[in-house]
Write a protein that binds this DNA or RNA. Structure first.
Lengths: 133, 133
DNA sequence: ACAATCCCCATCAGTTTAGTAGGATAAGTG
DNA sequence: CACTTATCCTACTAAACTGATGGGGATTGT
């Protein structure tokens, strides 16, 4: 369960936007200042969130971002998957431990990691931005 | 919870050794063949395990490795920590979410990840090589 | 016209990862 | 003693990933 700063920043940005949902568009700069995220880096992240339909945006003066769906419809898992790829168990784990492999013997090891993955997955899948706000 | 291949290989090697605990020293080559691990890479890993007192070893003909402690005294967490550093939440998560930071507001987010970390930690801490064998 | 703001891609330095290579050292065998 | 087998230990490398930074172009409101 490795969280990159991209994921962290994305979550922080979404939480911020959710908290100011009633207001107008909020600029990247405002978010960057509030959540202490490098502006240009945040821009990339917001753009990705927009492409993935989590945000709406408007250009020009008084432009900015806005949640594109209700905060309780955005699971943490969605966002983390968007930036970090597959959930909890990383490539190595999924490839080695979950897929067919020459070594079928270590079923017990697989079970342990599967249990962890399932827990992490379930937690992040059921927790939404709204829960965090 | 990112598992590097170092950790995976280490676990596989230990499981193999635990399974052959009654026998004499087992060579790196034997483990490499059985668990399909690149020999020279495995050597590094075994050496690290030895340095960390999980293995005893003997050089020369009929040399090899042997568990230095009972398999039920080696937690998966021990090994993963040895190779991957801190458990479940990675640097970014621990630094950002767990340590004092300018943004103290997102306590709820912290809570979610702390819950995950605790679960992962508890699971890996209580599961031993013996449990897997 | 102009300023603010998003859009979008290119680049980059540093770190990590997964492995390879090679030789030094030690132990058992004839 | 010489030889073989194995561990010990360091150094190196290619590729990927991470966390940014930079620079313009496109749009929109005033």
């Amino acid at each position: 369960m490795k969280l990159t700063s991209r994921s962290e920043y994305a979550l922080l940005a979404l939480v911020y936007l959710a908290r100011h949902e009633t207001e107008d568009y909020i600029s990247a700069e405002a978010i960057a200042l509030a959540q202490k995220i490098p502006l240009k880096f945040l821009e990339q992240i917001l753009f990705a969130l927009k492409r993935a339909k989590y945000l709406r945006s408007s250009k020009g003066q008084h432009g900015g971002y806005h949640l594109a769906k209700p905060a309780d419809k955005i699971a943490l898992a969605d966002i983390i998957r968007l930036f970090d790829g597959a959930l909890a168990p990383t490539e190595s784990v999924s490839k080695y431990f979950y897929e067919s492999t020459p070594i079928e013997k270590e079923k017990n090891l697989v079970k342990v990691f599967k249990g962890i993955r399932d827990y992490v997955s379930a937690t992040l899948e059921t927790t939404t931005i709204a829960d965090v706000v």
